[in-house]
Nucleic acid binder design. Structure first.
Lengths: 141, 141
DNA sequence: CTGGATGCAAAGGTTTTGCACGCTA
DNA sequence: TAGCGTGCAAAACCTTTGCATCCAG
């Protein structure tokens, strides 16, 4: 799970570059749109395949904890995330927090390997009330 | 987000009852199969619709943090979860943990409202190596 | 050269939705 | 009785995959 990818293709290189430029934790198709400006003929499938490979190699983070649509993070260093409960956008938490103590907790039927602290809230775009600016948003209630 | 549902139909009542009986944090279709034993003519769409209503009313928990398929929890009291990184199953952590301190953290562009500690690991079924018993599982590597 | 990677498009899995009818309050 | 809720099926949505071709090493 930490072995380097076999081939560094143009596509893989540019996907990685663009993801690392961003702090926005894009979804696969958001990244696809961005990469497409440099590689107009790239396909969405290629973006998905590369994000898979890169996350298995530990070069990017696949944020499972992000609701329906997966999001990706080019910053692999240990840090916490906030998620907008309205639109799903993910942000970085600036402060360093201690990793949850794994050895002190028990869960029947599970072998716990690690823990994470996650935050929830509302992003500025959603707080300011414009539903249009929140992609795929539908007001909760 | 905390108003009671307008009507307590047979379907809604039984869905809630069955979910509260379980500690397994089922997916919508797992719950559908269970409820179907009591209401053979119920539809999957109804299960989804009711889980939405019930979670908006705070009667059940919708566990967004569960990868591709969503899971639901009939136990609304504050407790932490473990997630199997192999098959996605969710379990309860027995120990009480302090809620992360929200006021001490900052995230640009976000208004943080609450935090949660989440754990990851492997469930017994996956540890024991039988891929067949893990629904939809595919070994990571 | 060779086998991993790509583009394309189709398939797959999960969740949502339109519609006519049913049933709770 | 009014109008929310239901069953059914189709649609929508996100992600994965098969295949012929391409290209990095």
């Amino acid at each position: 799970m930490e072995n380097k990818p076999q081939r560094m293709t143009k596509q893989r290189k540019i996907i990685l570059e663009e993801l690392r430029k961003l702090t926005s934790h894009p979804t696969a198709d958001e990244l696809y749109e961005i990469v497409r400006e440099r590689l107009p003929r790239i396909s969405l499938g290629t973006v998905y395949r590369n994000l898979d490979v890169l996350s298995e190699n530990g070069e990017v983070l696949k944020l499972e904890s992000a609701g329906s649509q997966k999001r990706f993070d080019g910053d692999v260093s240990s840090h916490c995330h906030v998620r907008c409960v309205n639109c799903g956008r993910v942000g970085d938490v600036m402060d360093e927090l201690p990793e949850p103590e794994v050895h002190s907790v028990s869960a029947p039927g599970f072998t716990i390997t690690h823990g994470a602290t996650e935050f929830y809230g509302v992003c500025d775009t959603c707080r300011d009330g414009d539903e249009l600016a929140a992609p795929g948003a539908h007001r909760t209630q």
